[in-house]
Design a binder for these strands. Structure first.
Length: 869
RNA sequence: GGGCGAUUAACUCAGUUGGUUCAGAGUGCCUCCCUUACAAGGAGGAAGUCGGGGGUUCGAGUCCCUCAUUGCCCA
């Protein structure tokens, strides 16, 4: 068989993926095995794969593949999210390119366009996940706007309404003037920006006096309905019961007193615009102030503003400042840094705005969700997120669930007789309810609410609704798969999504939706910036996979991804992943190239096998521990080192036959066995490569994807330590070769003065890796030789020529100095009475041993130096 | 402004209850080697007063206080 020198990822990946699909390995049905379930964080239906998805889904695939191999009934449910704002914005963009505006369309027509868009672009991302190797159960693919999913959402809304947890009301909401919808608090991103603080003076009615306020938003003076000062502020006490005059429009407004006002800030006087600031709104509410809404839904000024009607608020800000200056009302303006809210989806500046919305009461609903995370029924990894979570849950606010959009589940509220409404699954049922109030109502009198529900109002049910557990709470699937095991997602949606799933999980199943939450970091670029389309700093994952292989990219992602830490992504990591693929490939190539013969086994091979067996089982144990702690990158690194250092650099070199010589059967078989185990350990990380080699080793029917995960066995730790000493001896020899420029091919003799305590049973290995002609035990030091020590044993390599006495003495002196210093430290420790009295016995004992060893070493070194000089 | 973290080698990070195995890993860097699986490789090597300052202790990277820098969440 001719095996190429380099692993060709692109030639094997598709083959194996379709093979796995054909065999139905990804598909899961309830049976009598234990389930292991993951639901995917559904990506936006029209989105494309970015690095965050890569990380996320690689992790999920690692977990699910390992669980599958461990014998669980592994089920990974894929799907997509309808992402109401994002998708609707995209559809509208597309339509406006064709010259179509939303106003020109009926709701029905719009939905038709939206579905067309969804059918065209939806699911691209799922196809991309296949390239990554994601072993999702594609038969279970869900979409948050599937018929059954919609029904679950509506059922839940009605249920919560009937429980009195849904209400409708005028509240200050975060208004996105670009998308023209309300958004939730969580969808507002506060950014610090450089702006200006304007000092504007208002005349006091019937007086020559003026009062100056400071504001960052001068355009809102048109909506002012009061000026507020602190009652404790002596500067303003005389203004009680006075009125001020709003500049430009000359509206007369009261001066009110409230302790809310910070006397230190600005001038100590605050303008109050109840319609456009949440704090002003609360003050307005308290003092019964008039509310003047000066903004239209698109962020332009409304009729109520009187001036600048129809102009955008930012333009007005500039113009009004100029105008105020002309009028002498603008005292000054100064640079000021403040925080402004931006829409997560459209990046528009959010306007606080009063509007009629639907809300979900959260206080009671969220109690179990807080409790069960605090008592670790649900564990967050890393645990530092527990604090953040608690803080949020303890201050949870009611959830604004309505959106002024069309793409989504329409709120099942039906209006009649003006503002009266009923909540029901459909118009017919609504009519029945309405008739109880007003028997004369007919179906044509009912009008359904125009708003849709927040996207998260469907995704918070995801772990339940994908198994139809809302509509059919007792069905076999939900009983079997729920609660799911692990949720793997980014920390940016901890509150949007994770917390709410926990809330709904307890409300509707009385059980957590998952047991463990693994929060990844955010993928950043090399210099720490968040990856984003606009910065153009995000590599195309598909291209990366073409370049480095899916396995290479998977490894690259995981190498730098400890839980909860942001990961600075660099393409060179994928390169490392690819190099690793190649390393494994070549190890396989070496083994496969050997001729197998019925010959005697070399001693080095016997010893090497004994050691590696122990090392392997020891590492498996460590890997399992890392997995159990959700330290995935650590598990990968352990595997990486097992393969590269232990298996390739050491084991294979130990058993490798001479050039073009055959290998004995026993060693070969063992080696194949080891390789197979290694491939199994690699499979979750590198599914394609491991499957490919698995089948190249041997023609066989079984696939690695469903083989049993190797089990850790008890090991001989002493033997592993001994081997480490052995490798130190080998290093010592290699060092001498390097320092003295001795070719590797030249055989050397080694003399040993053995220290009985550090016995070494691996002479065969030292001989082979050191390329020695002999190892001789002696009790006398060897003249004219280079030497080194491992523990308390001395090793000599005699060399008649090239012997540099002075250099040798210098080296020995260096060692002597170090050891003398070390001895001093130990002596100090032991002469400290308090240490000897208080420290554990074992520790003191060890220190005493160290003391003896150091003394012995010094004795030997001194002797050597004396004999040389 | 409030809350929660972080600060360990050039970079990215480990470091469990203070004490053998504590100053580590990977990458990068330096030296030598195209040697017969792999140059996408091999062998060897250098590199850190564990952010600063105090404290507790026989003993602190680890616990406490404080300052600095920095990130995230919330207002």
């Amino acid at each position: 068989m001719i095996i190429p020198k380099i692993y060709q990822a692109n030639q094997v990946e598709d083959k194996w993926y379709s093979h796995w699909l054909k065999k139905g390995y990804f598909h899961s049905e309830p049976d009598n095995r234990k389930p292991y379930t993951i639901v995917i964080p559904p990506p936006n239906v029209t989105g494309v794969l970015h690095m965050g998805h890569m990380l996320n889904n690689t992790l999920q695939d690692v977990m699910i593949r390992r669980a599958r191999m461990q014998g669980f009934n592994a089920c990974w449910v894929p799907g997509t999210d309808h992402a109401s704002i994002a998708t609707e914005a995209k559809v509208l963009n597309k339509l406006s390119e064709k010259g179509i505006k939303k106003e020109d369309l009926t709701r029905k027509e719009f939905m038709k366009h939206a579905y067309e868009w969804k059918d065209e672009h939806g699911g691209i991302i799922l196809e991309q996940l296949k390239k990554l190797g994601a072993s999702c159960d594609w038969d279970r693919t869900k979409f948050t706007m599937d018929e059954d999913m919609n029904e679950s959402v509506i059922d839940v809304f009605i249920d919560l309404f009937n429980k009195g947890l849904i209400y409708r009301g005028v509240r200050m909401v975060n208004w996105d003037p670009a998308a023209q919808t309300a958004v939730s608090d969580e969808e507002v991103i506060h950014k610090e920006i450089e702006s200006k603080l304007y000092y504007i003076s208002y005349e006091i009615e019937n007086s020559d006096e003026k009062i100056t306020i400071a504001t960052t938003r001068p355009e809102t003076i048109l909506g002012d309905t009061a000026i507020c000062v602190n009652p404790n502020d002596s500067r303003f006490k005389h203004l009680k019961n006075k009125k001020a005059i709003v500049p430009l429009i000359n509206r007369i407004i009261p001066i009110i007193f409230d302790e809310y006002v910070d006397m230190e800030f600005g001038t100590g006087a605050l303008k109050i615009t109840p319609a456009h600031d949440i704090n002003d709104y609360e003050i307005g509410d308290k003092h019964n102030l008039e509310t003047i809404d000066i903004l239209n839904n698109d962020g332009t000024l409304s009729e109520d503003a009187v001036l600048y009607v129809g102009k955008d608020r930012f333009e007005v800000r500039k113009e009004i400042a100029k105008k105020l200056k002309e009028k002498g009302c603008l005292i000054k303006s100064e640079g000021y840094t403040n925080k402004v809210g931006f829409s997560e989806r459209t990046d528009a500046v959010i306007e606080p705005k009063l509007s009629m919305q639907w809300f979900c009461k959260m206080t009671e609903l969220s109690k179990p969700a807080l409790e069960h995370v605090m008592n670790d029924d649900i564990k967050l990894h890393p645990p530092k997120f527990k604090n953040t979570y608690r803080h949020w849950m303890e201050n949870v606010k009611d959830w604004c669930v309505s959106r002024q959009l069309w793409w989504g589940q329409r709120i099942p509220a039906f209006f009649y007789d003006g503002n009266k409404f009923v909540v029901a699954k459909n118009k017919e049922l609504a009519l029945e309810l309405a008739k109880k109030e007003n028997p004369k109502i007919t179906i044509s009198d009912l009008h359904q609410d125009e708003d849709v529900l927040d996207t998260w109002f469907s995704s918070w049910l995801w772990p339940i609704s994908v198994f139809d557990g809302i509509r059919n709470p007792k069905n076999k699937e939900i009983q079997y798969y729920y609660p799911t095991n692990d949720l793997i997602t980014g920390p940016d949606i901890l509150f949007f999504w994770v917390a709410r799933m926990i809330i709904s999980g307890y409300e509707y199943r009385n059980k957590p939706p998952f047991k463990d939450v693994y929060l990844t970091g955010l993928v950043r670029d090399k210099i720490g910036r968040k990856m984003s389309k606009s910065l153009g700093n995000s590599p195309d994952p598909i291209e990366l996979m073409n370049k480095y292989g899916a396995d290479g990219v998977r490894v690259g992602m995981l190498l730098c991804a400890p839980a909860g830490n942001d990961l600075p992504f660099d393409e060179s990591l994928c390169e490392q992943g690819r190099n690793f693929s190649n390393k494994i490939w070549n190890a396989f190539r070496l083994i496969k190239g050997w001729e197998i013969k019925d010959i005697d086994q070399e001693q080095a091979s016997i010893d090497g096998i004994k050691w590696f067996e122990n090392k392997l089982y020891h590492t498996i144990k460590e890997i399992d521990i890392s997995f159990s702690k959700y330290r995935i990158s650590e598990a990968l690194m352990l595997t990486y080192k097992l393969v590269w250092d232990d298996f390739c650099s050491q084991y294979l070199e130990i058993i490798k036959p001479e050039y073009q010589q055959p290998i004995d059967k026993e060693t070969y078989n063992k080696t194949i066995l080891f390789l197979e185990n290694i491939l199994k350990l690699l499979h979750p990380f590198m599914p394609f490569l491991s499957e490919e080699i698995w089948h190249l080793i041997d023609e066989r029917k079984s696939d690695i994807i469903i083989t049993k995960w190797p089990e850790a066995k008890s090991i001989d730790k002493q033997l592993i330590n001994e081997f480490n000493n052995t490798m130190e001896v080998v290093s010592g020899i290699r060092n001498i070769r390097k320092e003295k420029n001795i070719a590797k091919k030249e055989e050397l003799d080694l003399f040993v003065i053995s220290d009985k305590k550090t016995k070494n049973n691996f002479d065969s290995i030292i001989k082979k890796l050191g390329n020695l002609s002999s190892i001789n035990y002696t009790s006398n030091k060897v003249e004219n030789s280079f030497s080194f020590m491992v523990k308390a044993s001395q090793y000599f390599v005699p060399l008649s020529e090239n012997f540099d006495k002075d250099a040798e003495i210098e080296k020995l002196n260096k060692d002597l100095n170090y050891t003398t210093g070390f001895l001093k430290i130990v002596e100090n420790k032991l002469s400290n009475k308090k240490f000897v009295e208080n420290a554990p016995k074992q520790l003191v004992e060890n220190e005493k041993n160290k003391l003896e060893d150091a003394k012995e070493k010094i004795r030997i070194l001194t002797e050597k130096i004396n004999s040389l000089s």
